[in-house]
């Protein structure tokens, strides 16, 4: 009977992938299984070959950068997937029926700005503060979940980090600084209203909509997400 990789050796392979910078469970599973298959294959020809030696031999086949290239490319692929998701949800605010609400928000903000232009920085400040609070609470929850389950999923991490696009927090502020030199006329105020509403909707999408649907997207991406093993 062909020699098989034992459960303890499988654990060793998982530890090995972690040691070589594979933090995410889905990739660990795939690469550990790959190594196990390759080791079992080499045991057919060399049944006495030591497990550690066989493992190193197979790992060498991944090249000098080991698993790093695979991890990086996986990150790039899933970040792109996240961006696609994000734009999909964001665009909904500019389609019927939601666009009616979006226009209504723009009108309200315009009215507030016509009353006092300082309201721009106040609204902006409020959005930024709420965003930071939400981001921190999401991150704490995420860390707790990893501690509990011992598993890290790349897409979940991207969702928690908002795909790194939280940096866009800076954009409306920059617009404001550029507009301070301009006398606030009707066009400028309409523009400011649109920017504020679009920004608020964007933050709402990445901080509330996507995280609330995270489980659904994680299950669609990772068939093993809910598997008990």
């Amino acid at each position: 009977m062909a020699k098989k990789v034992s459960e303890e050796q499988m654990e060793e392979l998982f530890t090995f992938t972690r040691k070589h910078f594979v933090e995410y469970y889905d990739l660990q599973t795939e690469l550990a299984d790959h190594l196990a298959n390759a080791i079992e294959e080499s045991w057919i020809t060399y049944p006495t070959l030591d497990f550690a030696k066989a493992k190193e031999q197979e790992f060498k086949k991944f090249g000098i950068f080991g698993f790093m290239g695979i991890v990086e490319q996986r990150q790039a692929v899933l970040t792109k997937k996240y961006q696609k998701l994000m734009w999909g949800y964001f665009k909904e605010f500019f389609k019927l029926p939601r666009i009616i609400l979006t226009i209504l928000f723009i009108l309200i903000v315009y009215k507030i700005l016509s009353f006092n232009i300082i309201a721009y920085s106040l609204i902006l400040g409020a959005i930024v503060l709420i965003s930071i609070y939400r981001l921190v609470t999401m991150w704490v929850k995420h860390k707790q979940k990893i501690k509990q389950t011992g598993k890290k999923w790349l897409l979940e991490e991207i969702i928690t980090r908002c795909g790194g696009m939280i940096m866009l927090l800076n954009v409306p502020a920059q617009i404001f600084f550029r507009l301070t030199d301009v006398v606030p006329n009707t066009i400028v105020m309409w523009l400011m209203s649109i920017v504020l509403v679009a920004f608020a909707l964007y933050q709402y999408t990445i901080l509330y909509i996507i995280p609330s649907k995270a489980e659904e997207h994680l299950m669609a991406t990772y068939p093993e997400y809910n598997l008990k093993f």
Partner: peptide
């Protein structure tokens, strides 16, 4: 391996491949 897995993951993200996970022997 360094070329295969990124290609599989990209095809999967493009919606050309679907994935299934199964327990075989003592692993997924």
């Amino acid at each position: 391996e360094g070329a295969l897995y990124p290609a599989l993951h990209k095809l999967e993200a493009e919606g050309l491949l679907d994935v299934e996970v199964e327990k075989v022997d003592n692993r997924l």
